[in-house]
Simulated assay, not measured.
Amino acid sequence: MSAQAMEQAQQGPSSWKKIAGVTSLLIVVIVVFLVAFALPSINSEVKHIAVGLVAPEPLASAVIDGLDVASPDTFDVTIVESASAARALIEEREAFGAFVVTANGLTVETASAASYAVATALGAAGQQIGAAVDVPVTVDDVVPFSEADPRGVGLSAGALPIALGGWIAAVGILSAIHGTRQRLITAGVFAVVGGFALTAVLQFWLGTFTGNYWLTSLGAVLGIAATSFLVLGMQRMFKAAGIVMAAIILVLLGNPLSGLSSAPEILPEPWGAIGQLLPPGATGTLLRNTAFFDGAATTMPIIVLAIWFVFGLGLYLLAVARDRRRDPAAIE
């Protein structure tokens, strides 16, 4: 009989009190997960979205007033001089869209690749303004998703496995690979190979991504590396509690606050901003901006992921040094 079986036999069956306690705890965990995943989406709304406006005075003021009436507190309008300047704001991720008024009517420039929900709201607001002032309205999606995935479902469905895949890989590495150097090398190789492989699936098979494959893959590599080394470091430093803490950071908080299915800006404040400081949100933004916006506004997510990577690696090395001081003969 194994040691574990002997221990279970000595302990006897669990008491009903313990069964009730464990069951209650698991129910609480399920409810917390439900609330964490559902609440941000339920409370999401398009508010204070940055947009550009090209229109002469006093027409510009009339359009702004019309937007305030049609969609109160929805848009933060910046007046720009030309349609090209408005498009530059969109392509540089400084605005989600623009309203361009010309002699031929109103053109609503959107970027569904930035957020399909925001692009839809922009189009609806433009139609309301056009109806109010009796001018024709044209909606132009200047940065769309791919034709194969016009709503960007693959981004929200595929980017999260890229970010959370690092967590899954780290757990597998911890259970199957032994040795400090061996674990670090395995995590690094997985991040590189996995990042390029998963990006290839999203770009060449599912057709979601349309940008530079190599640059987008490097973003995926960084996202997987950040999560993998975070889990490795937290487990080595805090043991089983570290795995739980990493799951809270990456799954319980990082997943619902990433804003991948909509946009971080439409999540309740300040949760959208907080989500961008966690690996899933930073990875999603990095992939979105690299694949569809030629790398615009990628500095912040790169810095965030690099910090998480260094933090995880640092925790791991500190824990190794601590354990070797306690037991110099230990293998790892």
Rank of each mutant, 00 (worst) to 15 (best):
G281R: 02
S15L: 02
S217N: 13
R322K: 14
S261W: 01
G105T: 08
S82Y: 00
D68S: 15
I248H: 01
I173W: 13
T186R: 05
A131L: 10
W205N: 12
R151Y: 15
Q4N: 14
L257S: 05
E7W: 09
R326I: 15
F238D: 06
I168V: 11
F293L: 07
S24Q: 10
L230V: 01
A83S: 10
L198E: 14
L160Q: 15
P280W: 02
F293D: 12
S14L: 15
L267H: 02
G172D: 11
A88V: 15
V320Y: 14
S146Y: 11
Q128T: 14
T227Q: 01
A55T: 03
E269Q: 13
P279G: 03
T180Y: 09
A98R: 07
L198C: 13
P328H: 04
L122A: 02
S156E: 05
V221H: 04
G166C: 01
T23D: 09
S84Q: 08
G194I: 00
A197E: 01
L277F: 05
G158Y: 05
L287E: 10
K17F: 13
A169T: 07
L106V: 06
S261L: 08
E265H: 05
V142K: 05
F99V: 06
V29P: 02
R87A: 14
A60S: 11
T210I: 15
R322E: 14
D149T: 06
Q235S: 12
G188N: 02
W308C: 05
A241W: 08
I248K: 08
M245V: 15
I185K: 05
V193N: 10
E57I: 07
D65Y: 05
P56M: 08
G254R: 03
F238W: 02
V221T: 03
A330V: 15
P13E: 07
A297K: 09
L164K: 12
A187S: 08
S156W: 14
V22A: 10
D323C: 03
L26D: 03
T120C: 13
N255H: 13
D73A: 02
N212M: 09
G66I: 05
Q203Y: 02
L253W: 04
I64E: 08
G188M: 04
P58D: 03
A226S: 13
V22G: 10
N289R: 01
Y213C: 12
S112G: 03
S61K: 09
F145M: 04
G254H: 04
S262Y: 10
V101R: 12
G123C: 10
A306R: 11
L25K: 03
V189T: 11
G284P: 05
F238V: 04
S82V: 04
A296F: 03
S71H: 12
D134C: 01
A247P: 00
L67C: 00
L202E: 07
A103Q: 11
I49H: 04
E269R: 09
A330W: 13
R181M: 13
M237H: 07
P136L: 00
A20D: 04
G254E: 02
T180K: 11
G242P: 08
I19G: 10
